[in-house]
Design a binder for these strands. Structure first.
Length: 414
RNA sequence: GUGGCUGUAGCUCAGUUGGUUAGAGCGCCUGAUUGUGGAUCAGGAGGCCGUGGGUUCAAAUCCCAUCAGCCACCCCA
């Protein structure tokens, strides 16, 4: 067992990391609650087909990034690479069609077998929201607004740009797809290997290729917005108007094509340039056909997901705001009494760290290290007089307080 | 999955054309201070030099493989 290291692409979240992590999740949960979203949790693994049928057989996530395994009874299971499919499955399983519209928030680990990089892990964490059962563009606007406000509340909205696009409805998308194939096929031999493969599988993806030749060709390619039918065009117009009405800036990016097949109509991404190649921080869109595709009643949906690790790298250092108190007993009798005192203070909701061992100097050091606001020094000598020393760790001022009135004495630190 | 860069103490990093006992700063521990933290001073602990093989009298140093991290691609949160 020498050289134990975490599995490639996974990592431990120590308290310092976890504070950042939790700040992201707690803030987002609180903000989306303002929009009526409530937290749910779906299982971390699902039947493989839940993802196969929904994400698209050609998407990278399905073709090469899934952690799949065979259960002992022969079932094929997969660690979830994202959570929208799981929520959709839950919607069907639990018969929730009766209860639309539904607004859900989730937070938890996701798994993709990619080559790790900063901001790209094999086990990572996402938060996200899904709004099910509302076909109106008002839902898109509300969902985007919730994401926007969450980023604002995290203090990073200025580091991001909202990019917006419409893929149109299925009819528009198919028409555009055909137009792209017609356009690229004569130039087939000028495309990169990758571009050629995309032409077969998903021509839309050629548009955001980074290959130089592909880009040059793509620059002249038909534009998606020209192929939107009237309904799709109006829908997109309404989303844009809605965003402008509530003061949310965005940039149209006609090349914004989501990687998962279930998206249609609105797609959006909050991107940052502060994270290198992994610039997408919160992204989503509309997926009206998904639940029907999975065998449920036709149900429209919009949502987004955000990467917790990526957000955690962008936010300011989160500071714990509740004060910590250290109790420093000296002597056996005092130690016993200190334990009681600690429990009394905890009854009152205070965070109390009890020094277990070492001389006073060591215990004071520890109190200092954990960032205690005050140290309560209780030796046998104090105990005999029924008092405790309260030392303000910031100023060094120390005063004596009756053991019966400690809580009053600590009020100044709360 | 492809290409490039990098792996030396808990952390950040030195380490000469291969040469004998591998260093520094920070952190940690002990003491100055047997009941008082931060500052200062003195001392101390801590290394399979990522791992495995090879070349050599001799490898942290050169070669090969492998693993991991980072960067770019791919893709995506």
């Amino acid at each position: 067992m020498a050289h134990l290291k975490p599995v490639r692409g996974t990592h431990d979240l120590l308290p310092e990391d976890m504070r950042q992590h939790r700040a992201v999740i707690d803030t987002a949960r609180k903000i989306v609650r303002l929009y009526g979203f409530e937290e749910i949790a779906t299982p971390i693994f699902e039947s493989t087909e839940v993802f196969h049928r929904t994400l698209g057989d050609t998407s990278d996530v399905v073709t090469k990034e899934m952690y799949s395994f065979e259960d002992r009874n022969g079932d094929f299971l997969t660690l979830r690479p994202e959570n929208t499919a799981g929520v959709a499955r839950c919607f069907i399983s639990e018969g929730l069609a009766q209860k639309v519209p539904l607004k859900y928030f989730y937070a938890g680990p996701m798994f993709r077998r990619e080559r790790p990089q900063k901001g790209r892990l094999r086990q990572f964490h996402q938060i996200g929201i899904e709004l099910l059962g509302v076909a109106s563009p008002a839902a898109d606007v509300d969902v985007i607004a919730a994401g926007h406000r969450a980023l604002r509340s995290l203090g990073i909205i200025d580091k991001t740009v909202l990019e917006l696009n419409s893929l149109g409805d299925r009819e528009s998308r198919n028409a555009y797809r055909d137009a792209l194939i017609d356009y690229f096929t004569p130039h087939k031999n000028s495309l990169s290997d990758d571009g050629r493969a995309r032409l077969q599988r998903n021509p839309l993806r050629i548009l955001d290729s980074k290959d130089k030749a592909d880009r040059e060709l793509a620059a002249e390619a038909p534009v998606l917005s020209d192929y939107l039918n009237e309904g799709s065009r109006n829908f997109f117009r309404n989303v844009q108007d809605g965003l402008m009405r509530i003061g949310i800036d965005f940039k149209i990016n006609t090349r914004l094509v989501r990687g998962l097949d279930y998206y249609g109509q609105t797609t959006f991404e909050f991107v940052t340039d502060a994270l290198g190649a992994q610039g997408t921080v919160l992204a989503g869109g509309r997926y009206d056909g998904l639940i029907e595709l999975m065998g449920g009643a036709p149900t429209p949906g919009v949502g987004w997901a955000a990467g917790v690790e990526r957000l955690a790298m962008l936010i300011d250092k989160y500071k714990e705001d509740c004060p910590v108190f250290a109790i420093i007993p000296m002597g056996q009798k005092a130690a016993d009494r200190a334990h009681m005192l600690a429990e009394e203070l905890r009854d009152d909701g205070l965070v109390v760290d009890l020094a277990y061992a070492g001389n006073v100097s060591r215990r004071m050091k520890r109190a200092n290290r954990i960032g205690a606001s005050a140290a309560l020094i209780l030796g046998d000598e104090e105990l005999a007089r029924n008092v405790v020393q309260i030392r303000d760790m910031k100023t060094g001022n120390q005063s004596e307080t009756s053991l019966d009135a400690v809580i009053v004495g600590l009020n100044q630190f709360r």
